[in-house]
Amino acid sequence: MKPAPAVLACGAWLKNSAGLLQAGAWQASALHGDLSDPCACRALEASARALIAQAPGGVQAVAHDLHPDFFSSRLAQQLAAELGVPALAVQHHHAHIAAVLAEHGEPGPVVGLALDGVGLGTDGQAWGGELLAVSSQGWRRLGHLLPLALAGGDVAAREPWRMAAAALQALGRAEEIPARFGPAVGPLLAGQLQQMLARGLNCPPSSSTGRWFDAAAGALGLSLRQSHEAEAAIALEHAASAWLAQAGGRLPELLVLDILPPSEPAGCSQLDLRPLLARLLDTVQVPALQGEAAACFHLSLADGLARWLAQAAEHEGTQTVCLSGGCFMNRLLSQRLRDQLQLRGLRVLMPQANSCGDAGLALGQAWVAAHSMANAEDSAPASTRPAQRGEERSSSCV
């Protein structure tokens, strides 16, 4: 049996970190930060070249995110061309779950839930609430959160009121947008956003969990505009935790979320969060009521996710589920979901030493690429053409 290939992984865009996987051992670089900073880009390249120098037998592949415009992706392709090895693109949420498998030494199969802000999907859309089947042999998308419109595109991630407005539109209540948000953001802007949503102009859909959290915070008036990443989600968790701490063990009235079946044989199921947003949008913006509604959001979401995961695990014939992605930094969501899954007799794997956020993504990229190459070698006839210099391959449909 041939030794596993040495793989360099260049990470993603936010909280970037690279790493080298060789002989089953993982060596991570320092955390470089977001690649919007030129200093972080220079640090990533220096780290990547230093890691290459530490592979005695050379690097056999360079892994990167599926998004072609990330500096990390372009660097990976450049380095692969210099080394004469393949550059392998790995879908963002596949890498999140693969990182958990790599850390725990598990080959799968597992059902994985990746919850974060955004990652490019294989369909070109913004993913972020993904139910996946993953093993060392490949992966499949089983389901996702019901998408919300990103009203105005990327700016919606910085302005939670836009996500709350998108939730109103998804509930068939778009006529409420000007009256609800006009006093805070201006009647002209609120009216323009209503028209954008009605016409679908610059309103790409996203299954992002982070954007649903933004919508919830915006609906409760806890955050309308964010000055830093995850500010709205943190405010929502704080309100929920504070209410639960004072409730003396009492829980809010919880909602049962619908799991929408696949619309076609090869389609994906969807977890529908619209009833939760309807509850929050109808909550009077009084601190005590906001806290109870925020707790309802967290606990109902966790219970819905647990039921969804359990059904998928039964269908896939596995008792092991993996949880990863930046949204699992939310302790309230993580603990409730873990508890509910364990009550159903499922084995739950989560990151321990590795980050659940994008800082831990490179490990998953490297694990996927190493297994992809090993699987290709095992299945290819002896006459198969070797990869050409700098050849781009995608593991996103393995």
Rank of each mutant, 00 (worst) to 15 (best):
K2R: 15
P3E: 00
A6F: 05
A9R: 07
C10A: 14
G11W: 12
S17Y: 00
A23W: 00
S29N: 02
A30T: 13
H32R: 11
L35R: 09
A43V: 00
A55M: 04
P56F: 01
V59I: 14
L66T: 00
H67G: 04
P68H: 11
D69F: 04
F71N: 09
S73A: 15
Q77A: 15
Q77Y: 00
Q78I: 01
Q78E: 14
L79R: 09
V85Q: 03
L88P: 02
V90E: 06
H92E: 02
H96W: 02
A102M: 09
V111R: 10
G112N: 04
L113I: 08
R141S: 13
G143C: 06
P147L: 02
G153R: 07
A165Y: 07
A166G: 08
V185Q: 13
P187H: 12
L189Y: 15
A190K: 12
G221D: 06
S223D: 09
L224T: 12
S227D: 13
A232K: 02
A232W: 01
A233T: 05
R250H: 11
P252T: 05
V256M: 05
L257P: 00
L271N: 02
A278T: 02
A278W: 02
A278K: 13
R279W: 11
D282I: 07
C296N: 02
C296S: 12
D303K: 12
G304T: 12
L309M: 14
A310R: 10
A312G: 03
R331H: 14
G345K: 10
L346E: 04
L346T: 05
M350Q: 14
G360Q: 11
G364H: 06
S372A: 14
S372Q: 07
S379H: 09
T384D: 01
R393D: 01
